[in-house]
Design a protein around this nucleic acid. Structure first.
Length: 863
RNA sequence: GCGAGAGUGGCGGAAUUGGCAGACGCACUGGACUUAGGAUCCAGCGGGCUAACACCCUUGGGGGUUCGAGUCCCCCCUCUCGCACCA
């Protein structure tokens, strides 16, 4: 053993031992409980970043801990390997996306190995491998058979920068989630997956997943956006036709005084035909259609409308309702037509005031009566119906049910449920993705590729051009094919699938990555699934996590898997942030753009201005505040980096990077190393204390601390993944050991007690810093890896203090501390407290009104 | 606007069930060792007032419940995230 801790030497040594011993390779074993620990797989960008390191370190601690607890732990890793960055990088480097991707995978795999993560690498998969996406193509065909995949012409989100369409989930506030450019609407024929078929189940199970963070469930519920209401038909005044609306406020239908249509609504143009209003309506529609949807749906966008010249009738009151086209009505929600109730909807209220439309109160607040003339805003709450025929006097909730019944019995409408969730658009006009296995035949139309002709292999001889866009349509040998039905000439689909399709089922494929007969081996999948603990970033709260839930349910209905939900417990870790430096003139500054004048004072290298120390921001290249894990590992070793990531904050919170904090972590490892180095000879051949001899004094105290630490670390990991407090508990134990050592102790039990304390410190912290733990474990004479040890159990008896500290308060203020025997009764504790000299002076002879005794904690004397 | 979360020393954070606020670490200060110290060890470290003890104040602000509140309730402020004309 070297006197100095040298991670560069011991870390590769142990990584090698683990790999050779294949200790993280697992197979199904019915004799053990299984535990599936999964972290979100990375996109192979080339180098791992701190976000990966944090995510995977958290996962690794749990995986190692669970293994020590006797679980059969599956802990796989792979690559989310299709996607645009590969195309852009290939154009830039004049290479091929495949070359770029596989080179990156090799580099990143090496980096992950250097971190010492306990992956079962035999299960590795890359989604760009034909061996993976061939099964995805099969799943697509099965979905097509069941009507869950369909092609439709629709207004879709188009990102001009990325040269592709996007799913609704991939548009954030009107911007592309990847490049942040404005998304346009384009009418195109595209492939969709029918996630809306599962809307209700996806929503319902949000209430049955106690292992998920509430805020993720809330985001999913909001995204699905279920609204219960009614479809109501409003007859046209001068024809047999009607306008159908969806409303959640059918209790206000008697107050509907006009109608609003979306500009895209087919009736909008039709109704004004030949009328004097025609020109104005057309102009309005054209003008509105030109405006970006993101702008149209902005809060600040002015609500405008135009009268069509046509009228319909309120089916309940038979009153005449003018029909308007309005810019705030969305064609894609409900029916694209809204019954306007200005008294009970703020938007309609404002619209009615602008255009001088009539108001009619039909819902009163409980115990009050509204007056149309004095109204300054709409009354949107539930209340008691008035002016509503036979429904007057009913409460809103009751009236909604009654009106639904009435609508159904008269044929005027029906109860209805609408969702905000739209079907998942999966076509992408990109090259580096899984081809959609479909063929277009002029004679037979859309024809699926027969299963036995799968896979449709993505041609690798394509060359990308700097202008962007997919080269697939130009590849004759790919596009031109024969129709499986008529054998005539036909064309292949040239779009590829959204890469979120790959990530929707990779976690299931990990259970049987070598399976050749289908996407999933049901037996193996049944053993391992569901994922017991999934760990990843919050940014996938809706996207990946919703799609994966959908896929799991579809595969269940196909009989391929046995679970309703893929992820039992979800942990969303916070971001890794760091302080930023900013020059007023040159913007964000990376450390290499600055000179450090004095400590903590930095100057912009371009202009010499003192840089402002900016706020903590998520690490990103553009802000110049990234820290490269590779550099850190080289400098401090993986264990230090792991330790800092875990120690600096609990997993779900943001982690603030601190170079000094990293030094502190390194210092702790050195301290641990020295402890074992200096005691190695004394402890040689010593057997750990086994509780057979009674202990006194400081020996007893150290042994107690040892068991208290076992308990604290176990509970912190088991109950709440709070590794920061678990680590601080081990630090306390190490401090206690140092204290103990500095006193000469000649008790024959001293070395056994010391050895137990040292070993427990190593075992308890081994999931966090596995390399140094194994090295020191070996120094102490063990032959196996710590991860193959059983997790220790604490002894409640050893934990018990011989003297219990009791805090004594007078009128709630801390006045003294006393010690009592743990077996003391409340009366005895009270008596000791009241007889305490200091307490007596605080009471000062005043009558004691009350004494509160909390055993084991405090006494409060009230005077 | 709606929804969720957060606000504790110079900093990261701890206090798990209402019971000693500030564990652990960083930074800082003093000392020891030393040719040297950016290594290591020891000690101190919320603020006020102190020679020291003692005492007083302190968990964004204000009120309340309670013997007792960082923790529970009400009001307000600030920040972060999500949604946002959804009929």
């Amino acid at each position: 053993m070297q006197s100095r801790y040298n991670p560069a030497k011991i870390e590769p040594k142990w990584q090698n031992v683990w790999e050779k011993g294949r200790i993280f390779e697992v197979s199904e074993d019915e004799s053990k409980p299984k535990y599936y620990l999964l972290e979100m797989f990375p996109y192979p960008s080339g180098r791992i970043h701190m976000g990966h390191v944090r995510n995977y370190t958290i996962g690794d601690v749990v995986a190692r801990y669970k293994k020590m607890r006797g679980f059969n732990v599956i802990h796989p890793m792979g690559w989310d390997a299709f996607g645009m960055p590969a195309e852009n990088a290939a154009i830039k480097a004049k290479s091929h996306p495949a070359t770029w991707t596989y080179t990156n995978i090799a580099q990143m795999k090496e980096q992950l190995k250097q971190m010492g993560f306990s992956y079962d690498w035999t299960r590795e998969l890359a989604t760009c491998d034909v061996s993976y996406y061939r099964w995805e193509q099969l799943l697509f065909l099965k979905m097509y058979e069941r009507g869950l995949a369909y092609r439709e012409k629709a207004y879709v989100n188009w990102c001009a920068t990325c040269q592709t369409v996007l799913a609704n989930e991939q548009v954030e506030a009107g911007l592309c989630w990847r490049c942040s450019e404005t998304v346009e609407q384009k009418e195109m024929s595209q492939w969709f997956l029918k996630i809306t078929d599962y809307a209700d189940e996806l929503l319902e199970y949000c209430d049955r997943m106690p292992g998920w963070p509430e805020r993720v469930l809330i985001m999913q519920r909001n995204w699905i956006g279920k609204s219960e209401g009614a479809l109501i038909n409003f007859p046209m005044e001068d024809s047999e036709e009607h306008i159908q609306v969806f409303t959640t406020r059918q209790d206000t239908v008697y107050g509907a005084t006009f109608m609003s249509l979306a500009v895209e609504h087919p009736l909008s143009l039709k109704l004004c035909q030949g009328k004097p209003e025609e020109a104005a309506v057309k102009e309005f529609i054209e003008r509105t259609k030109r405006i970006q949807r993101s702008e149209r749906t902005s809060e600040f966008f002015e609500k405008e409308g135009v009268f069509t010249g046509a009228y319909c009738r309120n089916p309940m009151t038979d009153e005449r309702m003018p029909i308007y086209v309005a810019n705030f009505v969305l064609m894609e929600y409900g029916t694209g037509a809204v019954m306007a109730v200005p008294t009970h909807d703020q938007r309609d209220f404002e619209f009615a005031n602008t255009y001088g439309l009539p108001l009619k109160v039909v819902v009163n607040p409980p115990g009050a009566e509204l007056d149309v003339d004095g109204m300054e805003e709409a009354y949107e709450e539930d209340g008691v119906l008035t002016n509503s025929g036979e429904f007057s006097g009913m409460g809103s909730a009751e009236a909604r049910k009654a009106i639904n019944q009435y609508l159904e019995s008269t044929g005027l409408g029906e109860a209805s449920i609408h969702y905000r969730l739209r079907d998942w658009l999966i076509s992408r006009q990109r090259y580096w993705g899984a081809p959609i296995p479909m063929i277009y035949c002029d004679k037979c139309g859309i024809v699926p590729v027969p299963e036995d002709e799968l896979p449709v292999v993505l041609p690798l001889d394509a060359s990308l051009t700097a202008s962007g866009g997919t080269p697939l349509p130009t590849l004759k040998e790919f596009v031109e094919t024969t129709c499986p039905e008529c054998n005539g000439g036909a064309r292949r689909e040239v779009d590829t699938m959204d890469t979120f399709v790959e990530s929707s089922w990779y976690f299931m494929r990990y259970t049987c990555p070598d399976y050749q007969k289908g996407p999933l081996d049901r037996a193996r999948n049944d053993y391992w699934m569901p994922v017991d603990q999934y760990i990843g970033g919050i940014e996938h709260a809706v996207l990946h996590l919703l799609y994966s839930r959908f896929f799991t349910k579809v595969l269940r209905d196909m009989g391929m898997v046995g679970q309703d939900e893929p992820f039992t417990n979800l942990l969303t870790q916070g971001m890794v942030c760091k302080e930023t430096l900013r020059c007023p003139e040159h913007g964000w500054l990376a450390p290499e753009d600055t000179d450090e004048e004095k400590p903590e004072v930095y100057q912009c290298r371009k202009c010499g201005t003192v840089a402002e120390i900016g706020r903590k921001e998520k690490m990103s290249k553009s802000k110049g505040n990234v820290v490269d894990p590779g550099d850190l590992v080289e400098r401090y070793g993986a264990d230090t980096v792991r330790l800092f990531c875990l120690f600096a904050s609990p997993p779900e919170r943001d982690l603030e990077w601190s170079d000094r904090g990293v030094e502190g972590s390194a210092r702790f490892l050195n301290r641990l190393w020295r402890l074992v180095y200096e005691e190695r000879q004394a402890l040689q051949g010593v057997t750990s204390y086994d509780s057979s001899h009674p202990l006194e004094g400081e020996l007893r105290a150290l042994h107690r601390k040892t068991h208290q630490t076992i308990k604290k670390v176990t509970e912190d990991i088991e109950q709440r993944f709070h590794f920061n407090t678990a680590i601080s508990a081990v630090m306390e134990l190490v401090n206690a050991i140092y204290q103990f050592r500095s006193d000469d102790n000649h008790d024959p039990q001293a070395l056994p007690v010391l050895r137990l304390a040292v070993e427990m410190a190593l075992v308890l912290i081994s999931p966090m810093i596995p390399h140094i733990a194994d090295e020191m474990w070996e120094v102490l004479g063990h032959e196996n890896s710590v991860v193959e040890e059983q997790w220790p159990q604490w002894d409640e008896e050893a934990i018990e203090e011989e003297k219990q500290l009791i805090v004594v308060q007078v009128n709630g203020k801390l006045r003294n501390r006393i010690y009592v025997s743990p077996s003391a009764s409340n009366e005895e504790i009270q008596e000791t407290a009241l007889n305490d000299e200091r307490i007596k002076t605080f009471i000062g002879g005043q009558p004691v009104r009350k004494v509160v005794v909390v055993p084991g904690r405090l006494v409060n004397v009230v005077i």
